[in-house]
């Protein structure tokens, strides 16, 4: 099994307060879905946002350790690496669907246009491909040029996934992608995510344990900034090695 990335001894803190991530290490396997679970404030979203250097936008953060992108062994947390180039390679989908106030077409074209791609035929093709991958093509192919805000919440989230896919990221980060959606839309997104792993490596934060158990190949349980346990989802959810993991997945806290 190939590793796509490797987190090594990652420490993280906001300004001078206590560590939010304490020496976290875990592998991310290629073309697999890895779920990060744990109670609120355990650092799972902070860890996710390290992967595309979102923290760099706000300053006032301190981190050390590394996230190596394999096979090149490049540490994307290094100060020598431009965060914009990192974000070009690692896509992200947010909790709340956040389509831009543009047409459906332009939402997906945006990522290509900011990379300097102008060729219309190529963009057309990419828009269609990504919408198909996101399972949205049939619903919107006849109204690509209407505003993205006319879509339902679930459709908007699939549009955001299509938008991230259009730029062919190495890793796709999902930050609780279904927490703002109804159960039916959630089921759609879960199916979609499961089908996407053939093309892209996925790292997903979720509050929904069933979602992690259903969709993720690997699950990492975090608690108070530490990685308590990492393993195949089937093992984590049926036969956890750590007492804390068991307490959490059986609903005794969190």
């Amino acid at each position: 099994m190939n590793r796509k990335a490797e987190v090594k001894n990652l420490n993280f803190s906001y300004s001078h307060s206590a560590l939010v991530l304490k020496s976290v290490s875990l592998p991310i396997f290629e073309n697999k879905i890895t779920a990060l679970i744990g109670p609120s404030g355990c650092g799972k979203t902070t860890l996710l946002r390290c992967f595309n250097r979102m923290h760099d936008l706000y300053g006032n953060v301190k981190y050390d350790g590394s996230i190596l992108l394999l096979p090149d062994q490049v540490n994307i947390l290094s100060t020598d690496i431009d965060p914009i180039e990192v974000r070009m390679k690692i896509g992200m989908v947010f909790q709340k669907p956040n389509p831009f106030p543009k047409s459906i077409y332009e939402n997906i074209a945006y990522g290509l246009r900011i990379r300097g791609i102008k060729k219309k035929s190529y963009i057309d093709e990419k828009v269609e491909d990504s919408l198909k991958m996101a399972g949205l093509w049939q619903e919107v192919s006849d109204r690509l040029h209407t505003g993205a805000n006319s879509l339902s919440g679930g459709q908007q989230q699939r549009l955001c996934i299509a938008r991230a896919l259009a730029t062919e990221p190495d890793i796709l980060l999902l930050d609780e992608p279904t927490s703002a959606l109804d159960p039916i839309s959630t089921a759609h997104i879960e199916e979609l995510v499961a089908s996407l792993k053939k093309k892209v490596t996925i790292l997903m934060v979720t509050h929904n344990l069933h979602q992690a158990a259903r969709t993720a190949d690997y699950t990492a349980f975090m608690y108070l900034g530490e990685l308590i346990e990492f393993g195949e989802s089937s093992q984590i959810f049926t036969n956890p090695k750590e007492q804390k993991t068991e307490n959490y997945i059986t609903g005794r806290f969190g």
């Binding site: 979102m54 914009i84 974000r87 896509g91 947010f94 956040n98 955001c160």
Partner: peptide, 13 residues
């Protein structure tokens, strides 16, 4: 803010 982050996360300046 999430619109801003959405754009920046795509690698926009």
């Amino acid at each position: 803010l999430h619109l801003r982050e959405g754009s920046l996360a795509l690698g926009a300046s």
